[in-house]
Write a protein that binds this DNA or RNA. Structure first.
Lengths: 165, 165
DNA sequence: CCCATATATGTAGGCACTTACATTATTAAT
DNA sequence: ATTAATAATGTAAGTGCCTACATATATGGG
């Protein structure tokens, strides 16, 4: 099954950079969802980042996880609700600061994580394989992010708009 | 304003490839939205692809646009509704096939497109600039897509799962 | 102690896409 | 001519994120 490849998207080259990256991101998400489905696992992809952080670091707050994953606290908070609904994690107030919510794995969460470990390892290894086949794409992703850090896209657009044609 | 950079996301390297690409995509979307807002334009980003196709090719059907942009017809259909609501495009049944809907620009759409042309040019030029600074990222995006075409991620995961540890 | 400011997380609604399913028109097969 | 299969697009609901705003708690200054 070859992914849809519109005439325009690839032909446009760098000028359609944003759209290209979005399409690729969506494709990777789709393929990952198919992988979970093929394994007969009902799993929301946004759970992985959160569960993985808790596995690595033990109980964490919403804000800590959000920072580690480079997403907003709202995103974590929403996923947390789903994870709690499935009884995979337990949220409790942090004794040191009543504003904070400490998220930890339940025994059921532990169990699911253990059963998914081989799949996650395979996903990780195959991602590295893909990256290698793509000529170390991640290195260039770093470079693009660094470039945007130095000079945001909006500043670049402003500069171009100020140029005579 | 430097974008949030979580410890985990970059440190994970290629194993977090999917998440990295998603984060970058979302960042680019955010920065683009800021650009439109800074120009005082109320514009939905998903409109660009559709309008651009109609500009380049004249009236097109939902399916043609979807294929050119590598998105589903539903995505185009939904955006089409919004564009019609703003009176930027006009949808009519294709005389050659009553199932098809031909989308064309209204005079108001023409006017908006004309006024946005400098901005779109600046967006395109700065995207190419960013791509160059990132060492021709788009070339590697092509390679990754090609690699996935040849062997989908799910097949790779299956192969890894079958390997002895 | 009291008030102002900062911080942590929740709620509501939106963005741009997707899949599943539905309806209608067209084409192909018998 | 009739039926079955295919194609085009619409509707409904879902995904995973975001921003704006809100509430509660903690911290700092007077």
């Amino acid at each position: 099954m070859t992914e849809r490849r519109g005439d325009y998207s690839r032909a446009a080259g760098a000028s359609a950079l944003g759209a290209r990256i979005r399409r690729l991101s969506e494709r990777l998400d789709r393929e990952t969802a198919q992988i979970y489905a093929a394994q007969g696992v009902r799993f929301e992809q946004r759970w992985f980042g959160i569960l993985n952080q808790i596995i690595m670091n033990g109980p964490m707050t919403v804000g800590e996880i959000a920072e580690a994953l480079s997403v907003t606290h709202v995103s974590v908070s929403q996923a947390r609700r789903a994870l709690e609904g499935e009884r995979l994690i337990h949220a409790m107030s942090d004794p040191a600061d009543a504003r904070r919510r400490l998220l930890s794995l339940t025994p059921q969460g532990d169990s699911l994580v253990a059963s998914l470990a081989p799949l996650w390892r395979a996903l990780s290894d195959s991602a590295e394989e893909l990256n290698a086949e793509a000529g170390d794409l991640v290195r260039l992703l770093d470079r693009l992010e660094d470039a945007l850090d130095v000079c945001p896209w909006s500043d670049r657009v402003t500069a171009h708009l100020a140029l005579p044609d």
